[in-house]
Design a protein around this nucleic acid. Structure first.
Lengths: 239, 239
DNA sequence: TAAACTCAATTTGTCAGACAACTAGACTAA
DNA sequence: TTAGTCTAGTTGTCTGACAAATTGAGTTTA
């Protein structure tokens, strides 16, 4: 497990603690909290600070650390790259994955230029449908070079999230660029989503980059409007 | 003075240092950097961690701290708040504004709750159509309290961008939250954009905040797909 | 020669303890 | 009642130390 370092587990623990603490309430004092979470106070403070700069908590010297209104946390926006499964979980949306297909294809003109691979390079394509209350709400396609993800790499209990798998495996992913558009459902997509051909869909086309700025995943997402809510916070200048 | 604590000044110093360090380059090691910045290593690490979770830097134990590629500045996507006019200019899209309407309305239920004003408060509504090669490509609506923007405030040569006007006037705007969706064109919007009712549109619903977190502008944007290209860069959050 | 191994220097990750600065409530005195 | 003082508790910062990981040079080996 890559979570050997206290910090990552600590962040998760703290996030949970903050999440289930009512707004306005004070957290335990730092020495005590550090003891309970099994880390030193210095490490705890590093983690606390990251939540403070996110605006989730407020600290007052001499007084304590307080949880602030956490509407923000419930629907964080598109700035942070995380899997749909993670988003759904946080939004309290009960989703299931169906029609998972993992297959090997060869690069065509489009994928060739996006992934910067030679023609006939073997690629792994992962497709699946996300359902809420049994109805399809999103159709997701990931395409990766076989060198990055081989079909056999995926465990038997694979939950459908390529991003989560790569992150859990310890791949050093850095950022993702998503182009946003609205489209009419094509025949194939409409069939998968069980909608009329031509119905409106929100569409993301994403490139996932590793630390060397290489594209490791080309991803296409189609959403039936109204189930997932996407937003972004835009800042004036660079802040 | 407000900067009693080292941390605030430290964050500013670090931000500047990271900003002017070429991508991929290693920062000074922590003990040395702490010495130069006049803080302890513990405090420095708290600050560094906040930049790490933002994805601006990457740390490797035993190796060093590296500045990660800052794609942001080069091809600013939706992260940066700027007017459509500014975006179009950079994308080399020649656009014109037509059907500019500035009018006074009174708050209805929707605008009342969004702008947090009392019923019957006077509001200024600015509507206009953006055209490329003569054809409508976007329909934009801004709604603001009259106290923020009175119709008489606008100059005769107003170019249609409320955001640009507020910024030029020196208003202390901080951020904007945009909800993204795909919709069928309603009767009114379709008529303005000269499309068939039911044609697919990309839709942004935005709240513009000032420094006191007050909503100063409620904005609705409708885009015919294919003319404007919107994208966002999503960073892998640490966790 | 080229590959594999060893090892030490460097750097980040974490820890323990200490003291300063500040807060808030209890207490006291006018 | 009111103003001031005091004190226990909490966050802010610092120092020094050691563990863990990386890196590159040097050495050995096939």
């Amino acid at each position: 497990m890559p979570n050997n370092f206290p910090f990552q587990r600590l962040q998760a623990d703290l996030a949970e603690l903050i999440d289930k603490t009512p707004a306005g309430q004070r957290l335990l004092n730092e020495p005590e909290l550090a003891k309970q979470l099994g880390v030193s106070r210095a490490t705890l403070r590093e983690a606390i600070r990251t939540f403070e700069v996110q605006g989730l908590i407020r600290r007052k010297q001499g007084s304590g650390t307080y949880v602030v209104g956490k509407i923000k946390a419930l629907d964080s926006g598109l700035e942070v790259l995380e899997s749909l499964e993670t988003v759904a979980k946080r939004q309290g949306l009960k989703t299931t994955v169906s029609d998972l297909v993992v297959e090997t294809i060869v690069a065509d003109d489009e994928t060739k230029s996006v992934l910067k691979v030679h023609a006939n390079t073997k690629l792994t394509r992962v497709r699946r449908i996300i359902r809420a209350e049994g109805r399809p709400v999103a159709y997701l396609i990931d395409i990766l070079p076989e060198s990055v993800l081989h079909p056999d790499d995926l465990p038997a209990n694979f939950n459908g999230s390529v991003l989560d798998f790569l992150l859990a495996r310890g791949d050093s992913l850095v950022s993702s660029r998503a182009d946003i558009s609205a489209i009419d459902g094509t025949a194939e997509v409409s069939k998968q989503l069980e909608i009329q051909r031509g119905d409106v869909l929100l569409h993301f086309s994403s490139h996932l980059f590793d630390e060397n700025n290489k594209v490791v995943d080309y991803s296409l997402s189609y959403f039936i409007p109204g189930y997932f809510h996407f937003h972004i916070v835009r800042r004036v200048g660079n802040g």
